[in-house]
Each structure stands twice: as C-alpha cells, then as structure tokens.
Amino acid sequence: MIIDDSALMRRIVAKALREAGLPLDEIVEAANGVEGVAALERLAAEGHETSLILCDVHMPALDGVGFLLRRAALGLATAPVLMVTADASDPRVAEALAAGASGFIAKPFSVEQVREQAAAVMVHA
C-alpha cells in the first residue's frame, strides 16, 4: 500500500516497487491516513494480507503518525510501514518510528534503495 497526498509520488513509488521486483500481488493507493486506514479495514475484511506500507509523513486529513496510531488502535498494525520523506531530520519521522514505523526511505531514492529497504522489513520478501 502507498499512502501519499501527491498523486505523482504515489505513481513514482509504485513504479519503483514494481521495478524492484518485490513479491507484491497488488498495489493499493490512498491519498491520506484516513483513506489508508479505510483501505486496511477493507483489505482485512476481504481476507487480504497487506505485506508492506509506504507512507508519506505530512498529509492533510490524517498524517503519517496519525495513520500509524489509528491503525494500531484498530488492531490493524500487522504490516511493516516505511515512511517516505525528503527530510529525515523531521521530528515527525522520529515520532513515526516511535508509533510503529519500521524505518524510512529518504528522497531522492533509487529503485535499489527501495528494494533493499522493503526487503529488510517484508516478512516474505
């Protein structure tokens, strides 16, 4: 799953994931944390397993930290989450790690960096 308010970034990240050759059946996109939680609930209800979430830090409606906290409160914190950020020193990144994110990918990123970071946290990669 990719959660980002930028449609461009969602497509860039999706392209990188595909080119990285990770074992992903489907890539679900959400434009903010609210949509991300709704997508997780829907996937769980349909019996689908989410293997990886790439999440922006700053988004309207519900940001990356808010998404992490809400999914944990709903018992949906099973998939590893990698934050995607242009500013690794942003205090919100540290807050996201404290709220359950497994790590972060710093922009600019290469396909190889996405592959390495994702494989490191995905259970079945």
């Binding site: 950020t85 242009a86 500013d87 690794a88 020193s89 710093a106 922009k107 600019p108």
Partner: peptide, 8 residues
C-alpha cells in the same frame, strides 16, 4: 526533495 537534500 532538493530543499531537503540540500539542507542535509
């Protein structure tokens, strides 16, 4: 990305 990478 440029602002973040430059200040890093």
């Amino acid at each position: 990305v440029l602002a973040g990478s430059w200040k890093r």
